[in-house]
Computed example of a mutant assay.
Amino acid sequence: MKLMGSLTSPFVRKVRIVMAEKKLDYQFLLEDVWASDAILKINPLGKVPCLVMEGQDTIAGAVFDSRVIVEYVDTLSPVGKLIPERGRERTEVRTWEALADGVLDAGVLVRLEQTWPERTQAQRSQAWVDRQLGKVMAGLTAMNHGLGEKVWCSGNHFSLADIAVGCALGWLDFRFPDIDWRSENPHLARHFEKLSTRQSFVDTVPRLA
Results as ranks from 00 to 15, higher is better:
Tyr26Val: 06
Val70Tyr: 06
Val202Glu: 01
Val15Ser: 04
Glu118Val: 15
Leu40Asn: 00
Gly155Ser: 04
Lys135Ile: 10
Ala161Phe: 11
Ala38Tyr: 03
Cys50Arg: 00
Leu188Ser: 01
Val129Gln: 03
Arg94Lys: 12
Ile39Asp: 04
Gly80Met: 11
Gln132Ala: 12
Ala100Met: 04
Leu160Gly: 11
Gly80Thr: 04
Asp178Arg: 03
Gly107Leu: 13
Glu54Ile: 04
Tyr26His: 05
Asp25Gly: 15
Leu51Val: 04
Phe11Lys: 00
Ile163Gly: 13
Met137Pro: 11
Ser77Leu: 14
Gly166Ile: 09
Ile163Ser: 09
Trp171Asp: 03
Gln114His: 01
Phe11Cys: 15
Gly107Lys: 02
Trp181Cys: 08
Leu3Thr: 03
Gln123Pro: 14
Val73Ile: 14
Asp101Ser: 08
Thr197Trp: 02
Val108Asp: 04
Phe176Tyr: 09
Thr95Ser: 13
Asp105Lys: 05
Asp65Leu: 10
Glu31Cys: 15
Met137Phe: 15
His191Asn: 05
Leu104Arg: 00
Pro49Lys: 03
Pro186Glu: 01
Leu195Gly: 10
Met53Asp: 03
Arg13Met: 14
Gln199Glu: 04
Leu24Ala: 13
Asn185Leu: 07
Glu31Asp: 07
Trp171Pro: 15
Ala168Lys: 02
Met1Cys: 14
Leu7Gly: 10
Ser159Pro: 13
Leu112Cys: 06
Ser36Trp: 08
Leu133Thr: 00
Ala189Phe: 09
Ser183Met: 10
Ser125His: 01
Thr204Gly: 14
Leu24Ser: 11
Gly55Met: 07
Lys23Ala: 15
His157Gln: 02
Met143Glu: 00
Ala168Arg: 05
Trp181Ile: 06
Thr115Phe: 11
Val12Tyr: 05
Ser6Ala: 09
Asp180Ile: 08
Val136Ile: 14
Met143Thr: 02
Trp96Phe: 15
Ala138Pro: 08
Gly146Thr: 00
Pro78Lys: 00
Lys150Asp: 10
Leu76His: 05
Gln132Phe: 12
Pro10Met: 06
Lys41Asn: 14
Glu113Cys: 10
Gln132Asp: 05
Trp34Gly: 14
Arg13Thr: 12
Gln114Glu: 04
Gly146Ile: 00
Thr58Lys: 02
Asp57Gly: 15
Ser154Trp: 06
Leu40Lys: 05
Glu97Gly: 12
Lys47His: 11
Val79Gln: 03
Gly46His: 02
Met19Arg: 02
Ala98Val: 06
Ser66His: 07
Arg94Ala: 14
Gly5Met: 06
Pro186Val: 05
Ala60Tyr: 10
Thr8Ser: 10
Ala189Lys: 00
Pro206Arg: 04
Val202Ile: 13
Leu29Arg: 01
Met143Pro: 13
Gly61Glu: 00
Tyr72Gln: 08
Arg90Phe: 08
Ser154Gly: 11
Leu208Gln: 00
Glu21Trp: 04
Gly170Tyr: 07
Leu76Ser: 09
Ser154Phe: 10
Glu184Trp: 00
Leu208Ile: 09
Leu82Tyr: 02
Glu54Trp: 01
Glu92Val: 08
Leu208Glu: 01
Glu89Arg: 05
Arg67Gln: 06
Glu71Gly: 14
Leu160Trp: 04
Trp152Gly: 12
Arg94Asp: 03
Arg88Ile: 13
Thr58Gly: 11
Arg131Val: 09
Trp96Asn: 07
Lys22Trp: 12
Asn43Asp: 05
Val18Ala: 07
Phe192Ile: 01
Gln199His: 01
Arg198His: 05
Leu51Gly: 02
Gln121Ala: 15
Gly146Pro: 08
